[in-house]
Design a protein around this nucleic acid. Structure first.
Lengths: 176, 176
DNA sequence: CCTAAACAAGACCAATTCGGTACGAATTTA
DNA sequence: TAAATTCGTACCGAATTGGTCTTGTTTAGG
């Protein structure tokens, strides 16, 4: 445990794609939309990451709401990074997708209710120390640092939901 | 999110109780078992923490398997800390209850399977940095540091399942 | 003005995971 | 033998999560 959800993984991947495409714009020059440079559509990103279009769209919206992306509606619309990759922290991405980072329920200032479990409160000052250490760790690394030296593959193995379909769940479960 | 499960919270509380009882042994001298000093039973701990006996028992077994407690079976059996509180890290407790600490699936050396999602692999070196930072944070604080200055209350508010009694039926029966 | 492309928002469903319970077996002491 | 206590596992209900679908809203272009 102590792991963040798969969505966050996807989010970082998508952000990396956005950042990578931004870098590679001079080279490729091929975008889903017309000539809106640096703009990527949900469909295009889904194609390139191998994720489901609807899932990507949901994540993009979340990231835009978190202020990490700017969106342009309408035809020839799309998303682009709101800031340079080195100005986007992993902490910001995690927060945008999963909400505030707090490792325990009873920490970081009980908002409203006294606590879910009062007996745990005596421990809270210890947890708070840990919380801030984790936040620091996540705030200390940026999207730029997450980018691999080589550009991301144009289209990786298709990543579908592990559920539906006649073919059973071969995509995820069969990985091992 | 990014939170650890409630079980881990409970585990730390139980460990603190064990440590606290250990400290207070000279003063009180009252234990559930006969004269087995420093030994606590699951029932006794459940009583003092306000948690359910079965839940406490499960956690104690987990913690013992993780080498944090020593157990003594049979009559007058029980549990006691395997080491001094200042030699037990929060990291060890979390690991015992929740398994290995890794914030993402694709990190910390894929053990066997290549990865759940290959496309995420290019990110793994970044995640590994974050992983180790978090592990450090958790390994850096010990049970002794989690203990509040004042001894824990003998019996806090009863902590039951949040499920509100045996009047519940037929509301969500369709989900079968 | 109408249509197509694209984001916005939220409802909704299915599957997994989690918290908690129950029961039986093994072990130790008296 | 009987009682106390841990050990192990199987199980159930509920909460959370991952993912899909539907219905707007906004913009560009003919």
């Amino acid at each position: 445990m102590l792991k963040l959800s798969r969505m966050t993984d996807y989010a970082v991947l998508i952000m990396a794609q956005l950042a990578g495409a931004d870098q590679a714009v001079a080279g490729t020059g091929s975008f889903a939309n017309g000539g809106n440079e640096g703009m990527d559509t949900a469909s295009g990103l889904a194609e390139r990451t191998g994720l489901q279009q609807a899932t990507v769209a949901k994540l993009l919206r979340l990231l835009a709401q978190g202020g990490l992306l700017t969106s342009q509606r309408g035809a020839h619309g799309g998303y682009m990074l709101a800031r340079a990759p080195q100005d986007i922290t992993v902490s910001a991405i995690v927060t945008a997708v999963e909400g505030p980072i707090a490792i325990t329920a009873c920490a970081d200032g009980h908002s409203g209710e006294p606590c879910s479990l009062e007996i745990l409160c005596p421990m809270s000052h210890g947890w708070n120390r840990i919380n801030s250490a984790i936040r620091t760790a996540l705030a200390d690394i940026t999207l730029a640092e997450m980018l691999p030296p080589a550009p991301l593959p144009a289209r990786a193995a298709p990543v579908m939901a592990a559920k539906a379909g006649p073919g059973k769940d071969a995509a995820l479960a069969a990985a091992g």
